[in-house]
Design a protein around this nucleic acid. Structure first.
Length: 418
RNA sequence: CGGGGUAUGGUGUAACGGUAGCAUACUUGCUUUGGGAGCAAGCAGUCCCAGUUCAAAUCUGGGUACCCCGACCA
């Protein structure tokens, strides 16, 4: 993509109504646009990044047998009344049509997915099944905050699994936890599996996936020596004590952002919808349900919080909006810088490298500042200087390392990191 | 929802109750070109509704929006 065609532009200053680093940088870079408190639109750069995150999740969910669907977000009130959620879920957005019919906006999809699964899972032969979607969620938060970390409309991947037995559920629960850890690792984050309360809809322990950052809103205690980690909302989780798992470490307290969670929902929703299947003996049985969420937009905000510096964002390769930021320094004479940069843009693009090509006729300082702000992993400069050397200047946004490479060496390096 | 704060061109900010100024962005022209360039000209603003006053960005009341702390957080 040529930057001269990109309809967004960067800003030197963040709007005064954003304190959160993620929102400041994403707005300055032209990734997102604020509509109101807790509601943001995603612009080309932001959408590319969000889509990369979604695709990583999609790959991992598909790999463990998840089947993607797209559920409605406008829900009939009847289903929410059937489960009791209409009155019990305080964050549920409720709306009324002009004929006074009531609807809910999806804040989670058990009410929708359970009847869908019910329609097709009639026999034990149809189980287990895992269904997921990636889409918008709506929650009537009393207070939206922290940029895209807690919004009233946000992106989420939610998966629901239906099982014959508690044992089979436990098996898939463990499989999903591993898949989640792979998702977060691929986005560059170190997420801790954290014991937490089940919330208002499950009395059992749930597991949250926590990334250490002061921008989070959860307090956790964790063992520095092993994987033990618990949300402080759980009574037994106290800092300073010795680790109950390995015994070696002293539990440390930290601030963290919850980027994912998994719940054991038991039989609550099948019961509410009278969802049964026939077992081998032809007897009616109620399936066990699990649900698994990843906040896609919160994950994106967390990545910005964790990977950024005073100059801007520093995207991990896997989620960066582009692989390469090609910057041409046209200079006074111009020479054949433009011709050579155009050629390199075409070459890289044809090789499948995603390139943002800053072909604008602006001064070098502005291009460099924009490049640092946008945070694409690899910056490639073409200028009269580099042409004179017959090489390209390649700089890592993350390490700041600058090297002079030939086109072949650049392509080789890109194929390795990608 | 309780508490606190803020509201001025697109963005960031000044202005004792007395001419709304600066920067940036944008438009035009010329110069400039390896870390957010210079000169000149131009476009563009006091959140809304009342009130006080000769006079309101400024004071008062109400509303709205946004931010922060807390509570809440399927």
């Amino acid at each position: 993509m040529k930057q001269s065609n990109l309809f967004t532009k960067t800003r030197k200053e963040a709007p005064s109504d954003e304190i959160a680093k993620n929102a400041q940088l994403l707005i300055r870079g032209g990734f997102i646009h604020k509509e109101m408190a807790g509601v943001y639109s995603y612009l080309p750069l932001g959408l590319r990044t969000l889509t990369k995150i979604e695709n990583i999740i999609r790959e991992e969910m598909d790999a463990i047998g998840g089947q993607e669907i797209r559920m409605a977000t406008l829900h009939p009130s009847e289903k929410w009344k059937q489960t009791g959620g209409w009155d019990a879920v305080d964050v549920l957005f409720k709306l009324q049509s002009r004929t006074e019919k009531e609807y809910a906006l999806g804040q989670s999809e058990e009410e929708i997915v359970t009847p869908i699964a019910q329609e097709y899972a009639n026999s034990y032969k149809d189980l287990p099944v895992a269904i997921y979607q990636i889409g918008q969620k709506y929650r009537d938060e009393l207070r939206a905050k922290s940029g895209i970390m807690r919004g009233r409309e946000f992106g989420m991947k939610d998966m629901y699994s239906f099982h014959e037995s508690q044992e089979d559920f436990e098996r898939f629960y463990a499989v999903t936890k591993e898949a989640y850890l792979r998702v977060f690792k691929r986005t560059g984050l170190d997420a801790k599996v954290t014991e937490a309360a089940g919330g208002s809809f499950s009395e059992k322990i749930s597991y949250e996936f926590m990334v250490l950052t002061d921008a989070g809103e959860d307090d956790i205690v964790y063992c520095p020596f092993c994987t033990h980690c618990a949300n402080t909302e759980i009574a037994k989780a106290e800092a300073g004590g010795s680790c109950p798992k390995c015994g070696k470490g002293t539990l440390a307290k930290a601030r963290a952002a919850e980027v994912g969670n998994v719940f054991d929902l038991g039989v609550k929703y099948p019961k509410a919808f009278n969802f049964t299947y026939k077992d081998k003996e032809g007897k009616e049985q109620t399936p066990i349900v699990g649900c698994y969420g990843i906040g896609t937009t919160r994950l994106m905000g967390t990545i910005v919080e964790v990977f950024s510096d005073e100059k801007g964002m520093v995207w991990p390769e896997s989620v960066a909006p582009f692989n390469v930021h090609l910057v041409s320094l046209l200079g006074a004479e111009g020479g054949n810088v433009k011709v050579e940069a155009d050629k390199l843009y075409e070459t890289l693009t044809k090789k499948g490298v995603e390139v943002l090509y800053d072909d604008r006729d602006v001064r070098p300082g502005e291009k460099f500042a924009d490049s640092d702000l946008i945070g694409i992993p690899t910056r490639v400069v073409v200028s009269e200087k580099t042409l004179a050397q017959g090489k390209l200047e390649v700089k890592s946004r993350k390490t700041g390392t600058v090297s002079m490479l030939s086109e072949a060496e650049l392509l080789n390096q890109l194929s390795i990191v990608r």
